[in-house]
Design a binder for these strands. Sequence first.
DNA 1: ACGTTCGTCTACCAGGTGGTAGACACAGGC
DNA 2: GCCTGTGTCTACCACCTGGTAGACGAACGT
Lengths: 201, 201
Amino acid sequence: MTAMTRRGNTRAAILEASVDLFGSRGFAATSLDDIAGRVGVAKQTLLYWFPSKDELLDAVLEQTALELATVIEAAVRSAPDDPLARIEAVVKAVFRPAVRRPALLGLVREVSRLSPPHAERLTRQVQPFVRRAIDYLGEQMDLGRLRRADPGLVIALAYATVTGIATEPEALRAVEWPVTASGLRRLRDELVAFVLAALRP
Amino acid sequence: MTAMTRRGNTRAAILEASVDLFGSRGFAATSLDDIAGRVGVAKQTLLYWFPSKDELLDAVLEQTALELATVIEAAVRSAPDDPLARIEAVVKAVFRPAVRRPALLGLVREVSRLSPPHAERLTRQVQPFVRRAIDYLGEQMDLGRLRRADPGLVIALAYATVTGIATEPEALRAVEWPVTASGLRRLRDELVAFVLAALRP
DNA sequence: ACGTTCGTCTACCAGGTGGTAGACACAGGC
DNA sequence: GCCTGTGTCTACCACCTGGTAGACGAACGT
């Protein structure tokens, strides 16, 4: 099976390029030729690995969800039991890949533009996590360790804040924020402070 | 000039349909035929009023920015001098059209996907407002009436939160939020509470 | 040695895209 | 009555899109 040294390699390269392009330009604005060009391969090869653009999208979404879930889960596990500390850990953990590869969260945001089937599949995939998070936040609110609010909405709002700021470079340009290394570090800290202030009891 | 009873009418209808479609499906995913079909007119008529799809987009962006600026300015003016009260007024003012026509904010978000020239034009258009807002928030922070933070970032973050929650119905579906009239009212209140908690000193 | 499977390619196609050319209806000014 | 300008249309085009058909080489199992 040495013939397969490149197996998965091409596939992975296609997936990676697709995340970047779907996430930055959007699904509809990205042609198979664009992706193929970036990977350095013929369009045909894409359609060999993924039978259609739609199924490529599905694979891309699934992989992205998996990546993010892994990052988040690791952050939660490594943080102390305090809800604010956990939230801070999650925000920071998501911020890193979001800055390194803005398209990652951009892709998640793209979901609302896609056809209901795609959206629903992803929704169903994250649902268990969401439910666990809702339960956890609810408990912590009962204990008075978080501001009393609807746990589900709080998740949605925090998600909107983090995703929004990470995927809209234009918003940052509008307030003339420097996109340097130190600027990003400070952005991360202010983002954490913003979210924590919104959730503190 | 009675022949022009419909002048502006067609143009306005095209603009409105374009906001809806560009904002919901995205610019690239919307064809001129789609817009023409919704307006009930031939594609050629679109190209009569707007010489190209790109210039149509420009007009759409400009109109949207104007609409939002009007709403926001009115909200600021009608609110008392307290910064938290003003922020609450703005969030509520933006929330209303955002719910009535989700595509409005969706279009704004679309900007980050567009070509730099389009994005820059819009950025330049909102810049004076942003600068005034930054100055105002800075003053209020000095007075201790807002949590101390970078004013520009606070604006960007609040923008991200409001826009994100208003334009991502999927996020709400993921947390099983009811999209009923009363559900939306409560969403608005929780959104306001979230943002205010994030900004309170 | 040889057929088979795997990965990639070139060639091609039907349909949709943004955009052009030009005809038509109709109103107003002279 | 005729010319001119405005708004809309149909017909058409060059190009790009996602997707199919099938050839080709290389490594494999036997």
